[in-house]
């Protein structure tokens, strides 16, 4: 699937439009007592095509709301949002989501879970699709579990299926909502390295939500630091750690400097 659509006629854009562009997006919720709560205030962010952007912030800062808006699950009422230059109106076929919990269907095998998005969009599943699913299983290291049911897999394996399912459609944009937060610390690190490895093959743009500082620094090309009440972007940091990233990245002094910097940003408000 081509990720860069033709330029809108008349638009003077020398480059392909970014994967995600939010401009001055705000969100006000009406509270139960009639008072309004500003959940998001003036959020602007850009995810370049093929790049990895992480939004990091404390719980309740509205980072998941931002992701849901980009996913087309929540309407943007104030400000504008575009994906590859197109206004966000509804969930798009070239965008895939990975959730905090694996969101697998317990009555389907691992293979059928990988193919579920096709079926759920009403497309016939062809032999070629099954081949791609088999290759994806090898990529995520679960080739021996093709016929297993999700309940037979560990939490980390389940989330790998969730990621594999999202990547199988070769999305141009991958939205990840704290995908590793339900995993134990060891599995979490392992999954981060695995995601980096998968990204070498699938160069989709990623918008990744987390509240883990090391995870953000390890994965991101760019980090948007959010603060809460109202949710705003406090600072945007370009991460200049060398590629390829992996376990060795964690030992770099620069990695620790960036983590310290983020920690200071996230705690000084409190």
């Amino acid at each position: 699937m081509a990720c860069a659509p033709a330029h809108p006629p008349g638009a003077a854009r020398p480059l392909a439009p970014p994967a995600v562009a939010l401009e001055h997006v705000s969100q006000v919720f009406r509270g139960t007592g009639g008072q309004s709560v500003t959940a998001l205030r003036d959020i602007s962010l850009e995810v370049a095509a093929h790049s990895f952007t992480v939004i990091v912030g404390p719980s309740g800062c509205g980072k998941s709301t931002v992701l849901r808006m980009v996913a087309g699950l929540l309407p943007i009422r104030a400000g504008t949002g575009r994906i590859f230059g197109h206004p966000i109106e509804r969930p798009r076929d070239d965008t895939a989501m990975v959730f905090q919990r694996p969101a697998l269907l317990p009555w389907l095998t691992v293979t059928d879970n990988l193919l579920f998005p096709l079926r759920h969009r009403g497309r016939p599943v062809t032999g070629a699709d099954r081949d791609r699913a088999a290759r994806m299983l090898e990529t995520i290291g679960l080739q021996d579990f093709a016929r297993s049911f999700p309940a037979e897999l560990s939490g980390g394996m389940q989330q790998r299926v969730g990621i594999g399912r999202a990547l199988l459609g070769a999305p141009s944009l991958l939205l990840m909502d704290e995908p590793f937060s339900a995993l134990d610390a060891l599995t979490r690190d392992e999954m981060s390295f695995e995601l980096l490895r998968l990204r070498e093959r699938h160069r989709s743009a990623v918008l990744f939500i987390t509240h883990s500082i090391p995870e953000a620094v390890l994965l991101a090309d760019r980090i948007c630091v959010m603060s809460a009440r109202p949710g705003t972007i406090r600072e945007t940091i370009e991460v200049d750690l060398p590629a390829p990233r992996g376990p060795q990245t964690l030992r770099l002094p620069r990695f620790h400097d960036l983590c310290e910097h983020l920690r200071a940003l996230l705690t000084e408000r409190a």
Partner: peptide, 22 residues
């Protein structure tokens, strides 16, 4: 579970398919 419903919505599925398949 909410995440299964959200999966369905993110795939742009109709309500009919959400009921039949999830």
């Amino acid at each position: 579970p909410d995440e299964l419903i959200e999966l369905s919505r993110s795939l742009g599925a109709t309500t009919g398919r959400e009921y039949r398949q999830i």
